[in-house]
């Protein structure tokens, strides 16, 4: 006789929910990529498209939140299940914020009047984005696989993103010193870099939630700013 899985329906609902979280993550990733493409090519059309897409992401996030609340109310989860659902509430918020950063970068693209001069800076910004997206992808994978170890190690990569951020900041300062006329451009680019730096921080939060789901530990991978 097959043992009856007493919560098969609930398990199916949960796995469907995590698939949806994954697809929300994919949408956030595409938004970042799109906005970076717009920035690199100074293409306002793509930038505007990316801002419009953000609406979809917000809608999906609210749908998922509603889904979670319904499951909490109807299934009365306990133990790992309640940790899982509350973590999802947290993770979808983080994903929506990440999409907001894409919007931020797109706005920079729209406002910047001229094409950017420094190829180095643009390369570094692209690297920051790539690194952040890689962290995002791995964190969601860890979430799906319930992989505590990798969830603990991903935040270490934030170090490199921060390093790049500092480098971009230095380069922009140098740019302004050389040619004070670029101060507005530098400001916009600094803003874009800031958005990308925050992206990595959000991924760190997602990793904290993954660890919480798996172990019940509430951690904070804190990043101490120097004085």
């Amino acid at each position: 006789m097959n043992p009856i899985n007493t919560r098969e329906t609930f398990d199916n609902q949960l796995s469907h929910l995590s698939q949806e979280v994954l697809s929300l993550g994919k949408m956030a990733e595409i938004a970042i990529r799109q906005s970076m493409q717009a920035l690199q090519q100074a293409d306002r059309g793509i930038a505007r498209q990316s801002i419009r897409n953000d609406l979809e992401i917000n809608k999906k996030r609210y749908a998922l939140e509603n889904n979670c609340v319904t499951l909490i109310a109807t299934q009365q989860p306990m133990g790992r299940d309640v940790r899982f659902l509350t973590a999802i509430l947290e993770i979808i918020t983080e994903l929506e914020r990440i999409a907001d950063y894409a919007k931020g970068v797109s706005k920079v693209t729209i406002r910047m009047s001229e094409k950017n001069s420094s190829i180095t800076i643009m390369t570094h910004l692209q690297e920051m984005a790539e690194m952040g997206l890689s962290m995002l992808e791995r964190s969601l994978e860890a979430f799906m696989r319930r992989d505590t170890e990798s969830a603990r190690s991903i935040p270490l990569d934030d170090d490199q993103v921060d390093h790049l951020y500092n480098q971009v900041a230095m380069e922009l300062t140098n740019m302004v010193i050389k040619d004070p006329g670029t101060v507005q451009t530098a400001q916009y680019l600094m803003w874009a870099a800031h958005n990308l730096e925050r992206l990595a921080d959000r991924v760190t939060n997602i990793c904290e939630r993954v660890v919480y789901v798996n172990t019940g530990e509430m951690l904070e991978f804190d990043q101490m700013e120097d004085e």
């Binding site: 935040p155 270490l156 934030d158 170090d159 921060d162 390093h163 500092n166 019940g216 530990e217 509430m218 951690l219 904070e220 991978f221 804190d222 990043q223 101490m224 120097d226």
Partner: peptide
């Protein structure tokens, strides 16, 4: 300039 990650336990003791 940057300190490495530390993590701190942030809720009441789960002991």
């Amino acid at each position: 300039m940057q300190l490495p990650f530390i993590y701190e336990i942030n809720i009441e003791s789960t002991e």
